Simulated assay, not measured.
Amino acid sequence: MRITARGAALLITGPVLLAIGFGFGYPELAVLGCGALVAVLLAVGYALWRPVLGVTRRAEPDRVMRGEDCGMTLTVRNGSRLLAATLVADDRCGPTVVPVPVLRLRPGNDTVTEYPVPTSRRGIVTIGPLRVVRRDPLGLATVGRAHGEVARVWVYPRVHLLSAVPVGVVRSLDGRVDRVPHGTITFDALREYVVGDELRHVHWRTTARIGELMVREHLDTSLPRLVLLLDDRLAAHPDGTTGTGNDLTADSFEAACEAAASIVMATQREELPLALQTVSGEVVGGDGRRPATARSYLDLLAEARLHPAGDGDDLDGAVARLRHRRAGDTLIYLTGPGTNADLGLVGSLRGAYPTIVVGALGAAQAMRAGVEGMVVLSAADGAEFASEWDGVRGW
């Protein structure tokens, strides 16, 4: 609650008038002082009354590509049976504030406000909560409260069409053209049973031991398996850095996210397994906690941010994890302008990953491969990366 300047003036002058009125025998001044204090008390009580509001919001859609249209529909309903809501309200949509008309909202009625959600930047746009300010008629006191839940809109990086993806070392017997899995089917892991799983895949011994249905998950090792490592270290993207905290980003990092999104959509189109990892440790696919779906991959790319030194700034650890648990046969490393030390460190994985592709985004000039057999694609932005990618022969 906040007392306005007018209310503070009455709180100061009220006791003074009372003191002068009683001390010098002026009842009129005493009445004025008492009225001032009573007015402030009534204003506080009026402002403290909490309106019964129902707030619902709906984003259409809640996941969009950068630059696409997205709208928010906000509905505010007065749940009171007797009293009308006379309020001043505004909704926060990312960095902007949107006014919401709630003046003289009758009991049982609602008001609907629609406004666009900014999608010019990759990331997560936080919307809400609705901030409602109640003020007394004399303007002596105001109370601001938050109503409703916070909604989020995922803004994905732009996707550039890639005509092909690496085929890896081991190929399916009939190639990837017919999209039919062939080759060696091997046991990969045990997981909990979900509706739709075949009962012949149930591992009864483990089920009996833990008391829950567990099924065997198999992997076709003849299909090429790709690993995408996104460098989200601030040290890898030193130029063009903007924002602070969780909004810290750089032009080269935005280009790397666009390149990663393009690769994700290309692998989804070709129905190829992909493990997406960040240097800071986030994983989708492979052993990641999130399911390997296009939405999960793109959600991670929308949430990705740059980590300063000491906060996920450990390329050595990421390389060690990839070496310890080989997640595929083709490694794609997306970074900033790139340094020889970083390329050499990633090149040390050549024994575990026969094919290594490096995307140096934001590079002023072409980078050279750190080891033999490494393909380095230097590009200024995501569109140029897609062009360089499609220009590689032998995919």
Results as ranks from 00 to 15, higher is better:
residue 1 M to R: 14
residue 11 L to M: 09
residue 29 L to R: 03
residue 31 V to E: 09
residue 33 G to F: 08
residue 34 C to N: 12
residue 42 L to W: 13
residue 47 A to I: 02
residue 50 R to G: 01
residue 58 R to C: 07
residue 59 A to R: 07
residue 68 E to L: 04
residue 73 T to K: 04
residue 84 A to K: 11
residue 92 R to M: 03
residue 98 V to F: 11
residue 99 P to A: 12
residue 100 V to F: 06
residue 100 V to I: 09
residue 102 V to M: 14
residue 111 T to L: 08
residue 118 P to V: 07
residue 119 T to G: 10
residue 123 G to K: 08
residue 124 I to L: 05
residue 124 I to W: 03
residue 125 V to P: 04
residue 127 I to P: 02
residue 128 G to E: 08
residue 167 V to Q: 03
residue 171 R to D: 15
residue 184 T to F: 00
residue 186 T to E: 11
residue 191 R to T: 04
residue 193 Y to H: 12
residue 195 V to K: 07
residue 205 R to L: 03
residue 207 T to C: 08
residue 208 A to K: 09
residue 208 A to E: 08
residue 216 R to E: 07
residue 236 A to S: 15
residue 251 D to W: 00
residue 252 S to Y: 05
residue 259 A to V: 09
residue 265 M to Y: 13
residue 280 S to Q: 02
residue 289 R to N: 09
residue 293 T to N: 07
residue 300 L to R: 15
residue 304 A to K: 07
residue 325 R to E: 15
residue 333 Y to R: 01
residue 342 D to N: 04
residue 342 D to E: 13
residue 342 D to L: 00
residue 343 L to E: 15
residue 349 L to Q: 05
residue 354 P to G: 10
residue 359 G to L: 08
residue 367 M to E: 15
residue 371 V to E: 15
residue 372 E to N: 13
residue 375 V to G: 07
residue 379 A to T: 01
residue 386 A to K: 00
residue 387 S to Y: 02
residue 390 D to H: 14
